[in-house]
Amino acid sequence: MRDKLLFVLGAAAMVLLARNILVIAGFPNEANQGAIFKIIFFHVPVAMAAMGCAAAALVGSVMFLLTRNFKYDALAVSVTEVGLAFLAANLVTGSIWGRVIWGIWWTWDARLTSALVCWLLYAGYLMLRHAIEEPTQRATFAAVFSIFAFIDVPIVIFSIKWWRTQHPQPVFWGGGSIPGDWYLAAVLNLLAMVLLGIVLTVARLRQEEAQREIDSLRRTAHAF
């Protein structure tokens, strides 16, 4: 039952994503930036999905510390990994856009920099997990770190914004109103990303739980 539901959700996410790509490809090019502007339809939804993942990771971590139930630890690690993938997608799409519009792959723009710092923060979370053998200690320490990381995110974003406003800032796309169907495409793409994120998280979560079971069976087998 749970398997089927997961497959259905996954298929729905893929279909929706395919539909969105077709629709977005059919849009006319944006006046100033041309075709590359369309990358924004993916760039922004993955960023939002990544933020959602960070929030879910915080919930998982806090709940683990409160209940000591390993399900929450599995949730925290799964959702962090998926979030890192989304954030990586965000960084890569941003970088491609920057290459076309600014002519450079990377610039120390406020958003890019904060995204990179956040990515490093949560990569640190995974590294910390890898370095700890004992499951209870791993879950506890990782949860503590995840809380620190989450608290740091807004401070990072604000401080980098301040930092950048003191420097000449590359011009972002000029204002102007967004057509209704573009807005809808962006929202639908966000939905696709959220669905994808849920499917990936659940799949990873089950793998994590299976891994924990295997580890404990192994311990039992080797106990004597």
């Binding site: 390993f70 004992e134 499951p135 209870t136 924990r212 580890d215 404990s216 069976l217 311990r219 039992t220």
Partner: peptide
Amino acid sequence: AVDGVWKFYGDY
């Protein structure tokens, strides 16, 4: 007094 104490390493 130790009362019904369980300790888990993961699930073990």
